[in-house]
Each structure stands twice: as C-alpha cells, then as structure tokens.
Write a protein that binds this DNA or RNA. Structure first.
Lengths: 133, 133
DNA sequence: TTTCATGCAAAAGGTTTGCATGACC
DNA sequence: GGTCATGCAAACCTTTTGCATGAAA
C-alpha cells in the first residue's frame, strides 16, 4: 500500500486543479498555489502532479516541446480533448460513446487511461493563416 | 503553396521511418540515418520530422519528459497506440472501429489527426511490480 | 542565381534529482 | 521518533534557434 501524506502543498495543488476550468500547466499551477503557500517549489508541484496522475485523479495532455497540461477528472464528466496545433488551445468534448472496448490489447495489459484527442487547427487560427496567403 | 525541397537528408529520414516497425525517437532516427549521411545533424532531423508531421505523413506519440516517438502513417493501415507508462513500450492495435465521428467539435475546427491512446501498464511491468511488494 | 535547407553550436524550456531540512503520522 | 515530503538549486534531456555555408530548383 502506497503511503501518501496529506500535506498542505498537496491540498493546495488539488484545490487549484479542481477550481479551474482550463487545462493548466505546472507553472500556472505553481503561481496559482503560491497565493496561499508562497514558498511552495515548482519541484513539489511536479512531484504532486505525478502522484495525482499515478492515482488516476488527474490526466495529462502532452505536446512535444510544450509544457504538459493537467486536467482534473471530475466524476461523471468524461470528456475528450480537441487540441489546436497552432495556438495550443484545448477544448473539451463530451464522451458520450467512449471507445473503451479496445479489443486487440496486448495480453495482460492493464488500461489505466483512455485518451482520445482530435488535433488540428481551430477556427481563429485557420482564418489567420488564410489571411496570410 | 509551401515549397519543400527533396534533399538527401529528407529522403533518408523518410526511408528510415518507412523501414522500421518500431516507434523511434529523433535520436534513434539520427543515429540510423548517419549510416548513410554521417554529417547529418540532429537539428535537421527535427526540422524534417516537423515538416513530415505538418504534411500529415507522420504522426507523433508524445510523453512529458520523454523523447517524442514518430510513426509513419502507412496507407490503409490505421491503428492506435497502447503505451506502457512503466517501460515506455508502445504497441499497435488495429483501428477497426475508429471513433472518428467527433460530434461536438468547436465550430470551424479542422481536424488533421485523431489519436486514440490506451495508457497503462504492460504485462511484464505489472509482474515486476507485484514481485516487488 | 535565388532561395531554401543544412550543420554547427549555443540557448531555451521543461522536468527530474540530490540532499539537507522540516512536516506529517 | 521515524519516515516521507519539501525547498532549493543544479543537472538533465529534449527541442528550438541564429547564422554562415552549401545545395536544390
């Protein structure tokens, strides 16, 4: 059994994630939590986020060269993500028919997280690149 | 119209991606391509890969803190990915029933790529962590 | 010949880690 | 009191970028 201590730092990080409706990165969470705990370190934020991901409380949206974005898994609120490659905006879409079946998984693989992401260009960015031509 | 030059470096990167059945990262591709072009730089590999992703020829599998893995999109061979969080292994599963519908997308969003990923722990890693307890 | 890609090396982030200190149980 | 988390700062790794050179069209 993994022992997890209920520190004030951990509480603050969880609270910050719960309250926002955006998909913040570690630096944003850090600056946010500093309002309450001015001395909390970025390292602690990262360690806490890692633990939350391992516990299945939080999921990540990862993009090469960009900061990982974190998303609190509110109960009964399954959704997937739409990611704009141009500006990095992330939208939520409801997961009515989640594709959880996953036949053909490797033998013995234990699924912890299913992520469905639509990558492309949002309307605003598409307009801008049209104008540029 | 974007002008893309057909350089030997570009050819070599594409060939390396076509030939492998793994999901290599930029460093692996670099060392591989060096067999033919000993002076090719890692920067060029990255720039080429970026272009290939933009062109829709290649897709990425991204993990925070880990090197991005690249996957050549062989025609008529749609598949999704199974990612082991412990050892980083990536498996392919066929995309028989791809969840491409995506109702509820933001207005005007142009989808370029749909990625469905199953994250969890592979059989081998699960065994090892059991033994450790 | 003009333009774009390359190589090199340095810089820029983001994330992880070691260690002494402090907080939790 | 023992153990684990924290803060700090340095290290690490991946990826990006500036610039002079070289190769494609």
């Amino acid at each position: 059994m993994t022992m997890v201590r209920n520190t004030r730092q951990r509480q603050a990080v969880v609270q910050a994630l719960r309250e926002t409706h955006t998909h913040p990165d570690a630096a944003w969470i850090h600056s946010q939590v500093r309002g309450e705990l001015p001395n909390i370190s970025l390292g602690t934020v990262y360690r806490t986020l890692d633990a939350l991901v391992r516990d299945g409380v939080v999921m990540t949206i990862e993009r090469a060269g960009q900061a990982t974005r974190y998303d609190y898994k509110h109960a009964g609120h399954g959704h997937h993500h739409v990611v704009c490659r141009s500006c990095g905006a992330i939208y939520d879409i409801d997961a009515e028919d989640l594709p959880t079946p996953a036949l053909g998984l490797p033998a013995g693989f234990q699924v912890q997280d299913v992520r469905l992401e639509y990558h492309g260009v949002c309307a605003t960015c598409a307009e801008h690149s049209e104008k540029r031509v």
